[in-house]
Amino acid sequence: MQENLYDVNKEITILDVLDRVLTKGVVITGDIVISVADIDLIYLGLRVLLSSVETMEKRRAVN
């Protein structure tokens, strides 16, 4: 949870963060960058992590 990130009604999950910091933004050509193929692998790997997070925290407030 980001202290500086105003959060109206939910926890910020790793998936929320990854959706921005990996797949959007400036198209950068650093000397080393995470490739599109690697990003796909990260998302595949996160299926397990996502499931475990689900059991620990409520992702969304019921309105």
Binding site: I28, D31, V33, I34
Partner: peptide, 20 residues
């Protein structure tokens, strides 16, 4: 990036962008 955003406008870079 969030800390810097509190005091300045930023252009964020993607996670894991490295220069040698």
């Amino acid at each position: 990036i969030g800390l810097i955003m509190q005091v300045n406008t930023v252009i964020p870079f993607n996670f894991g962008t490295i220069y040698k």
